[in-house]
């Protein structure tokens, strides 16, 4: 059963790879503006681009040849697992993506973990006593945190933690402690939502008859939560957290730029501005495949948590 599911995901990955390649290529072709000029601006700086520089770029990259020829070259390279070379930096696309996607995954992973430590435990506690003071307080707090834009949260944390308290570096990348503030900025926003999710799921489970039965037969609150509560809200939580992770990898551009953190979102935006087609295709491809892989992993996890569907 699991093998069939994995086979299905593998086939899906193949389709995604092809579609992403075709679509990104078509979209890049459809963007307005002269490609040679945009690439020259990306390479040499915004006010260094001249008609001469654009002509040199056009000749070097053969931009005059038909677009489908360029696409066939990309497809052929992909067959050999070669993502090509960035037209801006001249470095292999794979090297560029590895560093920047690695940094994004690192940040997203740390943020998700921090948020999982903050949000769901508070949500579960609140859900067990739905309507209690913790539940009401948490509603106010999470609405408040959710309403603060990420860039503002980032600046508030820098001012408080780095400037007032001098505990952590304000921004940068390269040392271990650099990740804490950007991860916390993201985690607070995520925890605000996952706490509400966990609270609603838990309140739902706690209101079910089997929960009352467990209490009635004499299980303690802790035993009830461990044996019957966590597993029942697990499927919803795992699915939700995996969605949050995808949003994080793609959507942390703002936080990355505030904290001077390298990231794939930033790289993708710049690649689009600079009409760096190989870089855009490579990034979109890896993001697409990553999405499929994450879905597969989520499937596996939810099946482990709730095997009923398979037995049935």
């Amino acid at each position: 059963m699991i093998w069939r599911a994995l086979g299905y995901r593998a086939a899906q990955a193949g389709v995604v790879a092809f579609l992403v390649g075709v679509l990104t290529f078509l979209m890049m072709q459809a963007l307005p503006g002269d490609m040679a000029f945009r690439i020259a601006a990306g390479r040499y700086g915004y006010d260094m681009v001249t008609a001469d520089a654009a002509a040199a770029v056009r000749a070097e990259l053969g931009l005059d040849r038909p677009a489908w020829a360029a696409f066939m070259v990309w497809l052929g390279d992909l067959g050999r697992l070669d993502l090509g070379v960035s037209v801006i930096s001249g470095r292999p696309v794979w090297d560029e993506i590895r560093h920047q996607m690695g940094a994004s995954l690192h940040l997203a992973g740390a943020a998700l973990l921090l948020s999982a430590l903050i949000g769901p435990p508070l949500g579960i506690l609140a859900g067990l006593r739905a309507g209690g003071w913790l539940d009401r307080g948490l509603l106010v707090l999470s609405s408040g945190l959710r309403a603060v834009p990420q860039f503002l949260m980032g600046l508030i944390l820098i001012v408080l933690v780095s400037i007032q308290l001098s505990w952590l570096p304000a921004a940068g990348h390269g040392r271990a402690e650099h990740i804490i503030l950007p991860a916390l900025t993201l985690a607070l926003g995520l925890a605000a939502v996952s706490a509400r999710m966990a609270r609603d799921a838990m309140a739902g489970v706690a209101a079910r008859p089997f929960y009352a039965f467990g209490r009635w037969k004499g299980l303690s609150e802790g035993q009830m939560l461990r044996r019957h509560g966590l597993r029942n809200i697990g499927v919803a939580m795992v699915t939700f957290l995996s969605l949050q992770f995808v949003m994080l990898v793609e959507g942390v551009v703002v936080v990355e730029s505030i904290f001077g953190w390298p990231g794939i979102g930033h790289a993708l935006v710049h690649a689009i501005f600079g009409r760096d087609v190989p870089m855009v295709q490579g990034t979109a491809l890896l993001l697409g495949l990553g999405f499929v892989a994450l879905n597969a992993l989520t499937d596996l996890l939810t099946r482990l948590i709730d095997p009923r569907e398979i037995r049935a």
Binding site: L155, I158, V159, S162, I163, S166, P169, A170, A171, G172, H173, G174, S257, I258, F259, G260
Partner: peptide, 20 residues
């Protein structure tokens, strides 16, 4: 010595202010 590119002007100023 190190070099760090920081695109946002607010962040650059905060890095100076915090002594980083």
């Amino acid at each position: 010595v190190t070099y760090q590119a920081v695109g946002r002007a607010e962040t650059r100023a905060l890095l100076a202010e915090s002594g980083d």
